[in-house]
Simulated scan of single mutants.
Amino acid sequence: MANLDTVKAKNLNQFDGLAPYGCRFSVLTTDALGNSRQVAQASPNVEVVTADPARIRSSMLGSLLQLLRTRRFHLAELYPSSHLALVMAAMVKAWRLPLVIVARGEEWYYLTGQMSRRQRQSFRMTYRLADHVIYKETYMEPLLRDLGKRSAWMLPNAVRVPERTHVHEPGRCTLLYMNSMKDFRHPKVPLEAFLRICQRAGLRGDSPIRMRIVGFQGERASDPVVRSREAELRRMVAGRDVPVELHPWTTEPGPWLDQADVFLLPADVVFLNYTLLEAMSREVAPVVQATDASDRILTHGESGCILPLSVDAWEEAMEQLIGDHALRARLGRAARARVQECFSLEAWAERYHRIYESVAGGRT
């Protein structure tokens, strides 16, 4: 696996899920958070190779060359997130390895015109070098057709379903938004809706009914859009005695999800958000934006709420969920059942292994 910015906990699903099939991984990462080896140390079938932060480009390419020379690989997975990916793709092809692009989200910026001309050219050329594509979002399909990628598999995210389930208590409710502030997500909408509820119900800062927004990058945010959005959210609650908490981005979402009763995902891309699945697996009632394929994850009124991007609509749904713990519990149970049926790690790993067998063919 090449060109990861960091090894995350969700990558362990791939490593651990495919371990019973005898799969081993060499992971080449820029290690943006500096903890990739620590995250992966629990997976014995993984070796992590990190870039030298003082010379990322040369050390990444040098490390890839060293891996190609000293390991016997069956295939290479590549994350197409930079011009560096194009050079890596060319190196893999020169080694005559099957090249698999893992489409993880950069495609959104290509389709919405947010890449520079040079970035678009590199992106297209990287894709054209690929033999196969693994993708997880339905919005990516037109791009794959445009690029002529006939060998493509849709492999949505999957999660491990915890044994412990959630207890929804009357008189208490924590609403959670936990994602980044990228331009296709809209945390301002549920925040504005919640502030209206606070004003009407007289909720103060010590209320057991709370909203938490987790995902602020602060000074680490390089995207001016993200910085602007974070500043706007802070201004909305500054100086107000309201039960709203703003927290930094975290690599450990579990404790936040365990304390949540309602998970909020106002986003133009909902299918298939990993944190949403984690929340659903814990019986946290999901509320998502009505967008492409939202109804492929949950059913409105049965396993969650699917809403238009309207403050009025979110206010009404959030107020109903806050006041009805039995409704939250019913939606949460159905959401968990949906994950168990369609998005479990076991079924996902079996599917991934079949893809590997198809790609690698008879390579030994």
Results as ranks from 00 to 15, higher is better:
residue 236 M to Y: 14
residue 352 Y to R: 13
residue 346 E to G: 09
residue 364 T to Y: 06
residue 271 F to W: 07
residue 149 K to C: 11
residue 239 G to E: 12
residue 344 S to Q: 06
residue 87 V to S: 11
residue 134 I to K: 11
residue 364 T to A: 13
residue 346 E to Y: 13
residue 274 Y to C: 06
residue 32 A to C: 05
residue 279 A to D: 04
residue 158 A to M: 12
residue 238 A to N: 13
residue 197 I to C: 00
residue 144 L to V: 09
residue 307 L to C: 01
residue 183 D to R: 15
residue 25 F to E: 08
residue 358 S to R: 15
residue 359 V to E: 03
residue 236 M to C: 12
residue 348 W to A: 11
residue 257 L to W: 08
residue 154 M to R: 15
residue 99 L to E: 00
residue 32 A to P: 02
residue 350 E to D: 13
residue 11 N to E: 11
residue 18 L to R: 10
residue 219 E to P: 03
residue 107 E to N: 08
residue 131 D to C: 07
residue 48 V to N: 01
residue 130 A to L: 08
residue 169 E to L: 14
residue 134 I to Y: 04
residue 91 M to T: 01
residue 280 M to C: 07
residue 199 Q to H: 12
residue 189 V to H: 07
residue 175 L to I: 01
residue 81 S to C: 11
residue 57 R to S: 09
residue 231 A to P: 12
residue 270 V to S: 04
residue 167 V to F: 09
residue 208 P to N: 01
residue 343 F to E: 01
residue 303 S to M: 07
residue 94 A to Q: 09
residue 249 W to A: 15
residue 163 E to Q: 15
residue 74 H to C: 05
residue 234 R to K: 11
residue 149 K to W: 06
residue 203 L to F: 11
residue 362 G to Y: 07
residue 196 R to N: 07
residue 282 R to E: 05
residue 175 L to K: 01
residue 213 I to Q: 10
residue 65 L to P: 00
residue 256 W to Q: 13
residue 223 D to K: 09
residue 70 T to Y: 09
residue 242 V to C: 13
residue 139 Y to E: 03
residue 166 H to R: 15
residue 287 V to F: 00
residue 40 A to F: 04
residue 204 R to A: 10
residue 152 A to D: 03
residue 61 L to R: 15
residue 7 V to W: 01
residue 248 P to A: 05
residue 54 A to H: 13
residue 228 S to A: 15
